[in-house]
């Protein structure tokens, strides 16, 4: 499991570089509704590329950050049972944050 955590940390880091670049380009250069008004945001949040880039960024940033936090905590003297509890807590925090973060991005998807 630890080997996979390490592999996925690197993989998610690489995806984040891509997603961050995509987010920047989409947000500032090609996105419709650049004007920050209700109508502009409404238009932007219906655009598929914007939604995909932001959900991608949120999901991978959460994984990368929480997996990194787990690594930092385990650098200190942590028992195997405490490490298992920590893993469960961080997975729940990650899923919770993802479920909390996705609906606002999708708010205008249904028109």
């Amino acid at each position: 499991m630890r080997t996979w955590a390490w592999i996925l940390q690197r993989a998610s880091g690489a995806v984040l570089v891509f997603a961050l670049g995509l987010h920047w380009v989409v947000q500032h250069h090609v996105s419709p509704g650049a004007e920050i008004t209700f109508a502009g945001v409404h238009l932007k949040l219906q655009w598929l590329l914007y939604l995909v880039s932001d959900v991608l960024l949120l999901a991978f940033a959460l994984f990368h950050g929480l997996n990194g936090l787990r690594t930092v905590i385990l650098d200190f003297r942590v028992s195997p049972s405490a490490a298992a509890v920590l893993t469960v807590v961080l997975v729940l925090v990650g899923l919770g944050a993802l479920l909390y973060g996705v609906p606002p991005i999708m708010a205008f998807l249904r028109g």
């Binding site: 630890r2 080997t3 955590a5 390490w6 690594t71 385990l74 650098d75 195997p80 490490a83």
Partner: peptide
Amino acid sequence: VAGEDGVWRCH
């Protein structure tokens, strides 16, 4: 060396 106290602790 693959456990939590093995190589993965090296930063």
